[in-house]
Computed example of a mutant assay.
Amino acid sequence: MRFVKASAALVLVTLLSACSWWGGDKLAPDVPEQQLYEEALSAMDQDNYDLAVEKLQLLEARYPFGQYSEQAQLELIYAYFRTYEPESASAAADRFIRLHPNHENIDYAYYMKGLTAFEQDRSFLTRYLPLDETQRDPGAARDSFDSFSTLVNRYPESEYAPDAQKRMQYLKNRLATHEIHVASYYMKRQAWVAAANRGRYVVENFQETPAVPDALAIMGEAYTELGMTELAENAYKVLELNFPDYQIGTFKEPRSTLLNTATFGLFGEAEAPAVPARPTSTPGARKAQEEKEQAEETERSWFDRITFGIFD
């Protein structure tokens, strides 16, 4: 019995010490801070960003207050960006901004944060296939726009400001077009108030974008459906003055015929809704329309009247 206990104890000791026998518990040797930093830069020069991230993380862990710690944090943002880890890159940028609000290179942190969000949803499919990005979730685009906006407003002399401004214009167009897609969806569902609000949001916040005329047209049509004649007139008036060549269409859902509905769209084409007419609420306009209708009624021939307009 004593021999069995001794054997069991020996086996346990052997298992516990196995890792040290095989070298599993070996710690990485101490490496000077400058050497770690230079190795990280060398890895990035060779496009080996995974190794660069490893070296920079090790440098931060071992020398959190060293002479290369702040620069290493900036380099880590870029290394995460190049390894396609947008969440880590954004978190590293936020951390640097929080820890070093007065750093001379804080504009770079804001720029990289905006650039990370800008590229975040540009997947393989969106880069190489003709997919409409404006119909996707604009959350990353909004984050990118906010970061670039902060950079441009706080550091207008930054070397990154010109590129940020160009990207902001692209993002404004994208966000505005997304709002038009949403407003069109509301129009098809006859949610007139929601559609009008989306259109007004585009007009107020995304001026000088190609989506503004569509937004005004949606506002005019939605307000007409709601019976808000004055607001509809104002929207159409602004549209006509600023975009005289714009062709007014309709954003409502086509009405399906009975045959089209009964056959699940196989037969009988859906009837396109009529183009929205601009409302006329003034007494003079209503009187002119009534006089025109009376004149047309007077000009009808007797043959046209007795045949109810079928043959004439």
Rank of each mutant, 00 (worst) to 15 (best):
Q120D: 07
E39Y: 10
A285F: 01
Y80I: 12
T298L: 13
A295L: 04
S149Y: 09
A28V: 05
A235I: 11
T116Y: 03
L76Q: 02
S149H: 12
M187N: 05
D245P: 15
Q190E: 08
D137C: 07
E54R: 14
T134S: 13
G309W: 14
K166L: 05
A195C: 09
L59N: 07
M168Y: 00
A196N: 02
P29L: 09
L12D: 01
E133G: 04
L76M: 05
A6F: 03
K252G: 10
A272I: 02
T134Y: 03
A194D: 05
M228T: 07
T209R: 10
K55W: 04
Q294I: 09
E38D: 04
Q165Y: 00
A91L: 14
S20L: 09
Y110F: 06
E75C: 15
D132V: 15
L15K: 11
F96H: 08
L259H: 04
P130Y: 14
P130I: 13
F308C: 15
D45T: 12
Y49T: 12
W192V: 01
M187S: 10
Y37E: 01
Q169M: 02
E208G: 00
Q135M: 08
E75P: 15
P279Y: 02
P101V: 04
R142K: 15
I77D: 14
F206A: 05
F148M: 06
K252C: 05
F243D: 08
G24H: 11
E133K: 05
L16S: 06
M219R: 04
V238H: 04
T177D: 05
A93Y: 01
L56C: 04
H178C: 03
Y84R: 15
P101R: 13
E271D: 00
R200M: 00
D30M: 12
N197H: 03
F118L: 03
D245G: 13
G249H: 05
A52M: 11
P273Q: 00
V53Y: 07
S88H: 10
S20I: 14
E230P: 09
V202R: 06
L56F: 10
E38V: 00
G139F: 10
A164C: 13
A40E: 12
Y186L: 03
E291V: 03
P273K: 02
E54W: 11
K237V: 15
W302S: 12
R82H: 14
A117H: 12
A222K: 06
G114F: 12
Y155F: 12
L41P: 01
S281Y: 00
V212Q: 02
N242R: 11
P273M: 01
S69D: 07
R255S: 02
E291S: 01
Q35E: 15
K292V: 04
I218C: 10
A72G: 14
P279F: 01
E293T: 00
N205S: 08
M112L: 09
A61E: 13
P273Y: 00
L58Y: 08
